[in-house]
Nucleic acid binder design. Sequence first.
RNA 1: GGGUAGGUGGCAGAGUGGCGAUGCGCGAGACUGCAGAUCUCGUUUAUUGGGGUUCGAUUCCCCACCUACCCUCCA
Length: 456
Amino acid sequence: MKIYDTLSREKKEFLPMEGRRVKLFVCGPTVYDYSHIGHARTYVFFDTMASYLRYKGYHVFYLQNITDIDDKIINRGRNEKRDPLDISLEFMLHYFNDMRSLRVDSVNIYAPATYFIDRIIDQIQRLYDLGYAYETDDGVYYDVSRFREYGKLSHQSLDMIRAGARVEVNENKRHPADFALWKKRKEGEPFWESPWGEGRPGWHIEDTAITEYYFGPQYDIHGGGSDLIFPHHECEIAQMEAVSGKKPMVNYWMHTGLLTIRQERMGKSMGNVINIREILKNVEPELLRYFLLSSHYRSPVDFSYERIDEIRQSWEKIVIAYRKILKKESKEGESFIDDIRKYRRMFEDAMDDDFNTPEAISAIQLFVNFINKNMDGMGMGDIEESIKFFNDIDSILKIIPSGRVAEERIIELILSIRKMARERKLYDISDYIREKLRENNINVEDMQEGQIWYRK
RNA sequence: GGGUAGGUGGCAGAGUGGCGAUGCGCGAGACUGCAGAUCUCGUUUAUUGGGGUUCGAUUCCCCACCUACCCUCCA
């Protein structure tokens, strides 16, 4: 298995530090608003990745932080005259809800920053003691000039960073690129006690404090959106490698390409943010996942409802084939086992190559074509093997919808009535039932074995 | 200005130093109570432009142009 590493800029053979154990950390969101489809892009991918690693037999410890204290949260609290921590709690719960809707269920632990304040302070203290940090009137800052390799992840030198700086220089800082480890309390802000007085953590320190707590100073994979490469992940490296004296902090840096909307970056200022909860009113979660996974995770994805409509057909083809084969009855025997395994191998080969989901999906499409062509001649062994493959695909990509059990039973009941009508050639009744179901987005099809249905 | 990743058929989107996947769309046919699904066949010069390396490049190198992202909070 190969994984592309942002730091070395190459695909590297994947070798966990300890046998089959994989320590995976992915930067979670800042919870000051509803999660949008850009978040969906990143977290759906890492969910698929973690699921695939588990499918391959790795024991994955998937850890994700939640930034529940920062400027944006405080600002919102100020505007709404609410406790900022109340706001972050609210949107953290919305985030969990959205993730559940998207069938993201592979994260072992979500770690909110405010739960780790003591760890954060402890790490800052050690940086301070080692001479990597200095105190000013408004906080404690990391001294980037002390860390020679600052910029190695984004492939920039400190001079370049200084030259390109667009921001006004904070007078308190020794170098423009120095960043806050601890921010001293301002009026009306949440705060915690620390050796430097009351205040709150800077943004970058929570991740290294949390990962050090769970994983230690070194671990396997660190992921996030590619907008986090600089400065966020750069700062994490500077913190962790300075504190521990060990490097590398992680062996594989993985970054997802960003999602654009009609070729424009999504953002508050563009007024084009689409929230997950909003899009899921119109688009099935599995279809959204299918769309997101049909581009490679490192490429940008361009979203529009037109695109969703365009791929809907190919997505349904997979779903329909699955439901057909579930219904298929057959005789003993197996004649296509080798073919079916061949498609599974194609799928795995694609995923093994830096999680090439578009190519993996292409293997699924070929598999579906094969099934559609040969289903009638398949024996029981073939069908079982096919269903197993579909189930495995769905446990990884999660692109095949399944309904609620109670609802399914009622639909089955209605369909049994339709079957009786058809047997008596009461086609006006059977067509009426089919039409009414379709109005409720349930499509019914007649095939030799009987009726199959699926959500449209 | 600096950094990073790219520019492939009507659309989306992979791969590869030597017949350019896959799906959608489009056209024709088969099957079918109807519908739907599915199958078969077809779909015009598709690899940004210019150099270079090579027997041969879409793939490697250089230049140009273009796009996205980062250099400020951001998945």
